[in-house]
Design a protein around this nucleic acid. Sequence first.
DNA 1: ATGGTCGTTGGACGA
Length: 257
Amino acid sequence: MLIASFNCNSVRARMPVLKRWLADTSPDFLCLQETKVVDGDFPVDEFLESGYNSVFMGEKSYNGVAIISKTKPDSVFHGFDGKGSDEGTRLIAVKSGKINIVNTYIPQGTAPDSEKFQYKLHWFERIKELFDSRYKKSDILIWVGDFNVAPEPIDVHNPKRLLGSVGYHPEEHRALASVKEWGFTDIFRKHTPDGGNYSFWDYRVKDGVARGLGWRVDHIWGTSKASDKSVRSWIDVEPRLWEKPSDHTPILAEFNF
DNA sequence: ATGGTCGTTGGACGA
């Protein structure tokens, strides 16, 4: 079973990349963030043509999450309340058989001295509460998405300079670590101990991929029952080098379920 | 690297 996460930065603008990548890679589940489209305009039919079912919730211009999959999930949960009225365009979860997948687009946070940064920190508390209330630590639970945090020094290209900036801030590290303590393993890191593996490169940095000026802010985490069944995890840099790329690139994990 | 660029829009704003 192959599960992927990709901040596509507009699902409509990224359709050529998405179709090509799905045909090449054939994941069972692809979790998308920043779809930037209202539900009525989500490209359901185009994904169907590629062989994928879609569940999603979006809004005009900003945010938006989706999970596309080869088989239709048994159930879908939107936002913190399940119905989508509270952060439904940043959190979508599915259950498919025994497998639970939570896909999040965590707030970016803007600047450490901003209210939005506090909101981001609070978001980690809230999702920990969701894990507590909705899931068991013995579940097969896979949490993926754009967490907008690079957890370790090896996850940014210049940790000394970047420490304290949004995405690599001690308060974010504490907040994320607290969620991890609930019972998650960083599945990518389990299989790939080396630094320099990034999932995001700013559009404004010229030749950022070639120059290694990236961040690992997209993640696939899992409970022990998920992590123990993971056989490999990797970041596919190629789509970031294609024409009209997202500023992120897909991260994947393969499981022996 | 913080200036650089994207995407959605229809002028900025978010990232």
